[in-house]
Computed example of a mutant assay.
Amino acid sequence: MDSNHINKEFEDLWHKSHPKKAAEKKEAAWEKFNQEVFKEKKVQKTPNYKYAIAASLLILIGVSGLLPYLSHETSTSTPLLAETNIIKNPTTSLKLVYLPDSSQIDLAPQAEISYAKEFKQNRKVHLKGEAFFNVTKDKEHPFQVDYKQTTTTVLGTSFRISSPVKNKTQVDLYEGSIQMNVEGSAKNWLIAPGESFIAEDDQVKIIAFNLFKEFKNAPLHELINYIETNYQYKVEFQSEKIDKNITLKIKKRESLDHVIQVLAQVYNLDYHIDHQQKRITFQS
């Protein structure tokens, strides 16, 4: 039975059950009845591909528009990682280096340091080779040196980091205090002046050393040799005084200026220090 015939029978049934309705009311009522009984299946609308394509194009345009900004972020992030100051000492003598916080480093021959551009906020130095550090105090920003498997942390002090043999790290403390850490160990070691921290082959030991250098009635040329060897400055002294003996006790790694002042006072001499030429001249 087709749908037209079914509709006709329902229409006849409706008219028989509603004989007194006016023609115009019948038509309206029938229309309502027909909609309720024969609810049409909703037709799935065909997607509007024009709008879909337009939306896709907008997305593509948006992404392509962001590409310059994304590439800009990438290009700026790379230099940030690369914004590291590297200082090398390719010479055969010590190189004096001043850091942005006024800390001083005597960089040994063939040694190298690197540190972040924003050093005052992140006082961390990576060291290759050997160096002597004279660190400016800053309680809010501890000073750290990464060297091989060790980290040296200080507030303000003087110390030397060296590697006498392969796989051996030695830190000699002359002034202040330092904390030592070894990679892979949760233990901290606190070092006092006159102590050496030695890490070698997964073993750690702390030994004492003499903080002072003594000259007991020694020929003056011994002190001059000591200055030239440890400070890498050439000393010119009057020949008539060179053979005189001297008795003197100074701190190892004492500042060069202080050593020269003491020597000038002992012999009542004037002096001139040429830091560029690394030359010291004593004269009457």
Rank of each mutant, 00 (worst) to 15 (best):
V235F: 03
N181F: 05
V135E: 04
D12Q: 15
Q261R: 13
P47Q: 07
P219G: 07
W30D: 07
A22R: 14
A186N: 15
D12N: 14
A52I: 14
V135M: 07
D257T: 14
K8E: 15
P100K: 10
H126W: 10
K249Q: 15
A116C: 03
K32R: 14
R279F: 10
S114A: 11
K241P: 03
D243K: 13
L99G: 01
S102Y: 07
K26C: 08
I227V: 14
H272C: 02
K234W: 02
S77G: 04
D270M: 07
V37P: 10
S103A: 09
D2N: 15
P109I: 06
A218V: 04
D12M: 11
K168F: 00
D172G: 01
L94S: 03
Q203F: 08
K244T: 08
Q121R: 13
G65D: 06
E214Q: 15
G129D: 02
E36S: 13
F282Y: 12
D274W: 04
A52T: 07
T150M: 04
L269F: 06
H15P: 00
H18K: 14
I227H: 10
Q104A: 08
F33D: 03
E130T: 01
L58M: 15
H126E: 09
R253A: 09
Y174C: 06
Y51A: 12
A116Y: 05
A218H: 09
I113T: 03
E228R: 10
R253T: 04
L223T: 08
L94D: 00
E222M: 08
G184H: 11
